[in-house]
Each structure stands twice: as C-alpha cells, then as structure tokens.
Write a protein that binds this DNA or RNA. Sequence first.
DNA 1: CCTTGTATGCTTGCATACAAGCATGCTAGC
DNA 2: GCTAGCATGCTTGTATGCAAGCATACAAGG
Lengths: 257, 257
Amino acid sequence: MPSPRSAAVLPIPPRDSRRGAAGAAYRWLRGEILAGALPPGAPLSENEVAQRLGVSRTPVREAFIRLENEGLLAVTPQVGTTVAPIDLEQVADGQFLRESIETRTVAMAATAATSRDATDLKALLRDQGRAVAKHDQAGFLVLDDKLHQRLVTIAGRPRVWHTIEDLKAQLDRVRVLSLGDAQWLAAIHVQHEEIVEAVLAGRPDDAAIAMGRHLRAVFASIDTIAVAHPEYFRGAPGKPARQAPDVKPPGRTGGNP
Amino acid sequence: MPSPRSAAVLPIPPRDSRRGAAGAAYRWLRGEILAGALPPGAPLSENEVAQRLGVSRTPVREAFIRLENEGLLAVTPQVGTTVAPIDLEQVADGQFLRESIETRTVAMAATAATSRDATDLKALLRDQGRAVAKHDQAGFLVLDDKLHQRLVTIAGRPRVWHTIEDLKAQLDRVRVLSLGDAQWLAAIHVQHEEIVEAVLAGRPDDAAIAMGRHLRAVFASIDTIAVAHPEYFRGAPGKPARQAPDVKPPGRTGGNP
DNA sequence: CCTTGTATGCTTGCATACAAGCATGCTAGC
DNA sequence: GCTAGCATGCTTGTATGCAAGCATACAAGG
C-alpha cells in the first residue's frame, strides 16, 4: 500500500468493504449515484446491474442492501428498486448534524494544530485555488473533502470522518447538481481560507463560526436546486410515472407473441 | 405485529427492515448482541444461525451484512464471523458525536418546549423513578432512550434520533455490562431531572451543560467496565486463541474416523 | 520429544434455481 | 368508446449448490 498522501491515519482499513465482487458493485453504484450518473428516481434492477458488471445477483444484492441502508436506494419488495429521491428533510438533518459535529471539531483543531498541520492545510488551500482557476469542479470537490477530513483528524477524531461521510452522501448528490458555477467554487474557497485562517491563528470560536457559516452556505444552495430539478426530490410534482400509454415503444414489457 | 412496548413514536418505520426472514434475523441478532446474550468475541456462523431460525443462509447473510456495517459483527472472509469486540476508540467517538449533537438539540428543545412537552417529559421522569425504585434496569434503559428521543423530537429534529441510534449501538453494549448498580440508575435519573428542569425553565445553556455532564458521566463508567471485562474489548490481553493444545475435547472439529 | 507435512472439516463468497407478488398490456364485454 | 377482467412478464425474496481458502487435528520423520 503506497499510501499516496495524507496517510498515517489508520493503518487498518477496518471493515470497509473492499471485498471482491460485492465491494466492487457497491463502490461502482455508489460512485455513479453520487456523481449524478444515476439520478434520483432512476430505476435499477438486480439482474440488470449484475449483467452490467458480469456477476450474479448475489453480490449485487449485497451492494443494494448497503446502499439502501445509506438511503441511496429505495427497494420496494415485489416491485423494483430505484435510486432514492432526495429527501429535503433528510438533507437538512444531515446538514444539521454536520454543523453540530464540525463546528466542534474545527474549534478543537484550532487548539491542536501544529506547524506541520499548518503546512498541510496551506497546501490544500493552494491546490484548491488551482482547481478553482482551472474550473476543475470534480477535483475541487475531492479537495474539499480532504480539507474537512484533515480538520477532524487534526482535532484528534480521525474516525468521525467515517460518520460524516455517511451524512454527507445525501448532500453530495445535491452538490453535484450545483456544478457549473465558477463563482460558487470561488466562494467556497474563500470560506475555506477563513476557516483555516482562524484555525492556524488558534481562535477556536472564530473557527467554529466560520465553519458554521460555510456549511450553511452550502446548504442554502439546495432550495435553488430543488426548484430547478423538482423531479429529483421527494414530494415534487414531477412524477413521471403513470404517463399516458400513448407512445408505446415495442419494448420489452408486456406479453410477447 | 402487536408492538409489545415503546410504540407511538413514528407512524412510519422509514426503511427499517421489517422485511420477512431477513429483517427478523437482523432484529433478533441485534437484540441478542445489544442485550449481551451474544457477548463480544462470540463465534457465529451463517449456517448455525440459519438453522437456529429455521431459514436458509441467504436472509441470515443479509442480516450479517447490515450488522457488519453497524460495527456489531466482524466477518473474516474465509475464516468466520464473530461478534465484534468493543473498540474503546469507537465508543469514545460515539460518545463525542452524541455529545456534539445532543447538547445542541437539548438547547433547542429548551427554547421550543410547549406545555404538552412538559407534561410528557415529567411523565417520563416519573416512570423512570418508578423503574429505579423497582430496580427494573431493562425498563429504565428503554425509558432512558425514550427521554432522549423525546428531547430531539421537541427540538424539531425527530429524524436525527435514527442517527443517534446507530451511534448508540456500541455504547449500549457497554451499558448492559454495568447493570446491577442501583445507585448508578438513580444517578442517571437525577441527571435526567436536571436536564428536563433546565429545558422546561427555558435555559438552553444550562440544558446543554447538563446534557454534556450526563453523557460524559455515562462514558466515564466505561473504563471501569473495560478493566472488569477485558476479554470483551479490542486489544485486551485476554486472547484465548492459540491456547496450548493440551486438553482436547473429542469435539466436532478435525478429521473423523 | 519436537518439528514438519498432510488431510479433513469448517468458513464465507458466489452462482443458480425456485417461489410469490405486483404492475402492466391486452382482450372481452357492455 | 369505455370499462372490467385476465394473462404475461417483470421484480424482489428465499433456498440450494458449488468453489476457494484457512485453521485445525492427525500422522510421519528427525
């Protein structure tokens, strides 16, 4: 394990599913969902995914179970499986929890950061600045996560990042929908700079305040997105099911000759 | 499902697995583990549990996957499955997260509680007092959870209780080990009274402080338990594996005639 | 007596087959 | 033309069979 960078956190990958076919299916599906390639409401079936990945239903089913537990899939017993719609209440709860946790950890980080941490944080900010300049949104999101993870690690709670990751999942699906706005990325970058500045200055209260502002700002963009993409959210009127059976592609449902 | 106790909380069981055999296996195993009937380190096998429940391996396997994700089982691919040892760091992280969340929600509850909430909270405290008087530890633990859940509901975040439940799992396994101490229950009850008093008085800061004290007090008992039951914790020296092959019960392993 | 080699049984992971239920499309009747 | 009923294919849930790997117990040799 070459550990490319920012390692030295946990020598043990505790349980996290890098098992063969099942883990591969899980990671692939999760990535597709969080990246938006499988949008909320998209129908899935165990058979389809199994054929797609060249495995049987069993490992795919295992992945489905885990994704359902994370709230990313909605399995209806004898009907089918779809990518779970984004529940605005759930997103709000996730934001609330993140704020509760990260405002505290960032304050702790402000009192625990070493000069080595300062170097790392500054490097992350520099990389983020480059990503903003290049409009590299995907790269920026990765660096965003790395900064937040680094902060909780500095706070002495590296493992809580795992919990935050779970909470983050719903928010991430919204986040990718807000792509394309370079100003938005720049604003986030500025907020990160404010947070890191307070941390490195040893001002825990300011750090917590800056983190709270940052997380709320991210959350504030959700309403806009919900209006722009109502079909992705629960309770939205854009319910395409039960469309009038006018056009009938000679497709694969219904009786055959 | 007659729901023997602790109903009337959420009309919707959002996703929580009351599916047939798989859900039953999950709930049974989880209950046994959290109750301590299946102590940390206890070996399990899919076949054994399947026969025990009268189903096939498949639903049992589904339950194993979910319990592994919750950190309650440790599955080693070609070796076997055991009830996960209690990781003190993981427990500490869970406590930290609970404190981060519940100190905030209880403060919110202090500003949001209505007279109806006051009645409910007082009733819960009264019931807890009765449970303490009767040394009904199991009943007290249930009422403990109900109080905490009620508080987050009053705070307007009923769904965060689901997250807290996940975090609680590791702590609960420790909690049952500390049974038998009536003074301990009484102390918790007093702490609850302090919390509710601050909430009903509309003093959010005091409520948060009282909640923090309460959660830390629960956590403080863990070290004592870890000393008393080292074999249940990760990294403990009580590692019975590789015991000298002296005594050999003519057991069920190894070659047959 | 100790060490090494071998064989057996167990375990989980994966693939496949069967069962039950629902939604949909077609067809018969009004 | 419209409605009610029926049949088909799909879906997930469950059961079973096969494969690969490890730990252990036994046996043979030094």
